[in-house]
């Protein structure tokens, strides 16, 4: 099957007064129709910027696409005019952004903002669009949608605004949904309901998704493929189960280690006696990133080469097909050596 989206060597820079931020460096991947890709990783690793860049939504300047391609159904998004992009955004490509307060217009009612995309992309009448907006609010679990549809963003709680954003994102039944931390502001029962909804849409419409999140539990429940980013680069990518079970990047391993133990009994009062595992050191300064593997300075298993040369993303030795890692070290032998 031809990929729905092919990202090739995407590189994004921000030229600021203090220097150039190397936000995204050489990111490449394919996304098949109907596939769900979860993108996880460090805060500031370029997760949001890499999708915003594809959609033509980074401020230029200071932003600049320094190289690469992003082929959506064969057409390069990075070479499109703003007009062409606008006809895709909110139509064939649905979007849910990280920050609903700044993505929603404070002076327009929530209902109006949902109907906007229905009217432009689906050519619905005003009345039909409003009816559909109510339906969408109901779908994302907002109670009394009839009454809520005329409210303004500030009258919604954080989680309700997030759900309004989700309603806008899925309004036109997109072929690709790009969601940047869409459920982090929601309680877990609503989150579960949203996940059920997008799973259903995925099945019914064959919708593909790029789902950016920090919640490894959500990743476990939704992702076909997981991509782990650090310092503007992909550190590891593979089938979800493999990335959890047969982790190959020291950064991914650090992330999984730092989660609170799901099975440990809660022991209130002695919290100070326990600690969560932290990854030592600081995230890199993306104006002066380390010359080699960006994670090397914090990686206890780093080899000399890790400090001087950027490792390419390649098939991990002995792992399932499609399980890729960017590492000069072999995490399996390094961990075995450390344990011994």
């Amino acid at each position: 099957m031809a990929p729905l989206l092919q990202v090739k060597d995407l590189t994004v820079r921000f030229d600021t007064a203090d220097g150039t931020v190397q936000a995204v460096s050489g990111v490449s991947y394919d996304l098949a129709p109907g596939e769900t890709l979860a993108v996880v990783g460090e805060s500031g690793s370029g997760k949001s910027v890499h999708v915003l860049a594809m959609l033509g939504l980074i401020p230029k300047p200071p932003g600049r696409i320094a190289g690469g391609q992003a082929l959506f159904e064969g057409r390069d998004l990075l070479a499109m005019s703003e007009r062409e992009l606008r006809s895709l955004r909110g139509g064939a490509i649905g979007m849910i952004f990280q920050d609903p307060m700044s993505a929603l217009n404070p002076v327009l009612s929530v209902g109006y903002q949902i109907t906007e995309s229905l009217r432009t992309h689906m050519k619905l009448s005003k009345k039909a669009a409003m009816a559909r907006a109510v339906e969408l609010l109901d779908l994302v679990g907002i109670s009394e949608p009839q009454r809520r549809v005329v409210h303004y963003p500030h009258q919604f709680s954080g989680g309700m605004r997030q759900r309004a954003m989700i309603a806008i994102g899925i309004a036109c039944e997109p072929r690709l949904l790009i969601a940047d931390e869409p459920t982090t502001a929601l309680d877990v029962t609503v989150q579960a309901q949203i996940l059920d909804l997008v799973r259903r849409l995925r099945k019914q419409l064959g919708m593909a998704m790029i789902w950016i999140t920090h919640d490894m539990g959500v990743v476990a429940g939704i992702a076909d493929t997981v991509q782990v980013m650090y310092g503007g680069r992909v550190q590891e990518r593979g089938p979800a189960r493999q990335v959890f079970r047969d982790t190959r990047s020291a950064y991914t391993w650090g992330l999984l280690q730092s989660l609170p133990d799901h099975d440990a009994p809660p022991s209130a009062g002695v919290a100070s006696a326990r600690r969560l595992v932290q990854i030592p050191g600081y995230p890199p300064d993306m104006m002066n990133p380390p010359p080699g593997d960006p994670f090397a300075p914090r990686n206890p298993f780093a080899t000399e080469r890790c400090h001087s040369e950027v490792p390419p993303l390649v098939q991990a030795p002995g792992a399932s097909p499609g399980h890729m890692v960017a590492a000069w070290y072999d995490l399996r032998t390094a961990r075995a050596g450390a344990a011994a």
Binding site: G41, S43, H214, S272
Partner: peptide
Amino acid sequence: ITALDVSIQAQIVNLFMDLQQ
């Protein structure tokens, strides 16, 4: 900590506990 990656979440939660102690 909602907006943070899990390793920084761990860092902040540890920090909260340390400061409390």
